Computed example of a mutant assay.
Amino acid sequence: MFDDVTSVALGSALTGLAARQRAIADNIANVETPGYHATRVSFEDSLRSAVDDGSIASGSVTSVGPTSQKSLEPTRLNGSNVNLDTETLSSVDTNLRYQLTLRAVDHDFSILKTSMRSA
């Protein structure tokens, strides 16, 4: 019932965005930790590929998980490479994307709810 392309893609996007938000929170919490390297989370390219090649639609991929890696950006004197401005902007962007994706999920459920009432 919820294994169509749209539902799986939206669920994967929410999972990826939530993972990114957790990584951003960890980065901000460790902004002054000597030697800490920021974590970056990505999932958009693999999700786009799974949708484009039809692997989500065919059922061979039920979701696309996020991947995380340590940032290779230059470090400050204490060895940390967390940039508070970058993290703050990334947090705002991620929150807005999450809200938009939730609205899309809500819309899908509203359509389902309406169709169930009509039946």
Score class of each variant (00 low, 15 high):
30 N>T: 03
17 L>E: 04
49 S>D: 10
49 S>H: 09
91 S>Y: 13
80 S>T: 14
76 R>Y: 08
117 R>S: 12
118 S>V: 14
86 T>H: 13
78 N>Q: 07
105 V>Q: 09
64 V>A: 04
26 D>F: 02
22 R>Q: 15
118 S>D: 11
74 P>W: 02
33 T>H: 04
46 S>I: 00
39 T>P: 00
110 S>E: 14
24 I>R: 03
20 R>T: 05
57 A>M: 04
32 E>D: 15
101 T>L: 11
79 G>E: 08
81 N>R: 09
29 A>G: 05
118 S>Q: 12
94 T>V: 12
100 L>Y: 15
97 R>S: 15
39 T>K: 13
91 S>P: 03
30 N>K: 01
76 R>M: 10
19 A>I: 06
33 T>W: 02
103 R>P: 06
97 R>A: 15
8 V>N: 12
63 S>M: 10
106 D>K: 15
42 S>C: 00
71 S>T: 05
102 L>R: 14
27 N>C: 04
8 V>T: 12
47 L>Q: 01
2 F>V: 10
101 T>H: 10
3 D>N: 14
63 S>I: 01
75 T>E: 10
56 I>R: 00
15 T>F: 10
52 D>F: 06
82 V>I: 07
108 D>G: 15
65 G>F: 08
69 Q>P: 00
71 S>W: 04
18 A>C: 06
17 L>G: 01
114 T>K: 14
63 S>H: 10
67 T>V: 11
91 S>C: 07
103 R>W: 10
3 D>Y: 10
20 R>A: 05
116 M>E: 04
42 S>F: 02
114 T>F: 12
107 H>V: 09
12 S>R: 05
40 R>M: 04
10 L>H: 07
62 T>Q: 13
62 T>E: 11
2 F>T: 13
104 A>C: 09
88 T>E: 07
105 V>F: 10
70 K>Y: 07
55 S>Y: 01
82 V>E: 05
14 L>I: 10
109 F>L: 15
7 S>V: 06
40 R>P: 00
37 H>W: 03
36 Y>W: 02
68 S>N: 05
7 S>G: 13
22 R>M: 11
106 D>W: 09
105 V>S: 09
65 G>D: 13
25 A>K: 07
111 I>G: 06
86 T>K: 14
7 S>T: 14
72 L>I: 09
44 E>I: 00
83 N>A: 11
37 H>I: 01
86 T>P: 00
75 T>R: 08
60 S>Y: 00
33 T>L: 03
29 A>R: 03
88 T>K: 12
81 N>A: 07
18 A>E: 14
73 E>Y: 09
46 S>R: 13
83 N>I: 05
14 L>P: 05
57 A>R: 04
19 A>E: 09
60 S>L: 07
77 L>I: 14
8 V>C: 10
99 Q>I: 14
21 Q>N: 12
55 S>V: 02
33 T>M: 04
1 M>L: 09
35 G>I: 02
89 L>V: 13
17 L>K: 05
9 A>L: 08
14 L>D: 06
59 G>C: 03
103 R>Q: 15
103 R>C: 11
2 F>C: 01
78 N>K: 05
26 D>S: 15
64 V>N: 01
90 S>A: 14
74 P>S: 14
31 V>K: 04
